[in-house]
Structures are given as C-alpha cells and as structure tokens.
Simulated assay, not measured.
Amino acid sequence: MELDQYCPQCEAERTFWLAASTELHLGKKTKWRCPECNYGFVQIDDTVDTSASA
C-alpha cells in the first residue's frame, strides 16, 4: 500500500510505504515509512496520527 504525505525530513510530498499493520482494540494501526529518508509515522484509524505532531 502507498500513501501520499508530506515528509518533514525531506520537506517535500512523498509516497510513503506501508511498513506494518495490525488490529488493536482502538482500531487498525498502520506504520508508514518514507523510502527516501526512512522517516516514519503511525496512524490508528482516524483517531491517532503521529505525523501531525512532527
């Protein structure tokens, strides 16, 4: 899977790759990685998105 997202390390729009996915009691947890710089962030459904804190 792919996700187009702004990468704060590269300071550009990048296509992130799905690194991992699992089901939690909070919802589906996905980890995304930038192939250029290896920056990563986590999303849990629409509730948590660690890319917003970067």
Rank of each mutant, 00 (worst) to 15 (best):
M1L: 11
E2Q: 14
E2F: 11
E2L: 13
L3S: 08
L3C: 06
L3K: 10
L3E: 05
L3H: 10
D4R: 15
D4K: 11
D4A: 07
Q5W: 15
Q5P: 07
Q5E: 06
Q5T: 09
Y6I: 00
C7R: 01
C7A: 02
C7H: 00
C7D: 03
P8L: 00
Q9I: 13
C10D: 03
E11I: 01
E11L: 00
A12K: 05
E13F: 06
R14L: 02
R14I: 02
R14W: 02
T15Q: 02
F16L: 01
F16K: 05
F16Q: 00
F16H: 00
F16G: 02
W17R: 15
L18G: 09
L18T: 07
L18S: 12
A19M: 09
A19G: 15
A19K: 08
A20N: 14
A20Q: 10
S21E: 14
T22I: 13
E23F: 15
E23G: 12
L24T: 11
L24A: 13
L24F: 14
H25V: 07
H25M: 09
H25P: 15
H25C: 11
L26C: 05
L26R: 07
G27I: 01
K28N: 04
K28A: 03
K29I: 05
K29V: 04
K29A: 08
K29R: 11
T30F: 12
T30G: 07
W32P: 03
W32R: 04
R33K: 14
R33D: 02
R33C: 08
C34I: 01
C34K: 01
P35R: 03
P35S: 01
P35K: 00
P35Y: 02
E36M: 05
E36R: 10
C37D: 03
C37Y: 00
N38D: 06
Y39S: 04
Y39N: 02
G40F: 10
G40P: 10
F41T: 05
F41E: 00
F41H: 04
F41Y: 08
V42E: 11
Q43V: 08
Q43L: 08
I44G: 03
I44S: 01
D45Y: 04
D45G: 13
D45F: 03
D46T: 05
D46K: 09
D46R: 12
T47A: 07
T47K: 13
V48K: 09
D49G: 09
D49P: 08
S51Q: 12
S51N: 12
S51H: 14
S51F: 12
A52L: 13
A52T: 12
S53A: 09
S53I: 09
A54D: 03
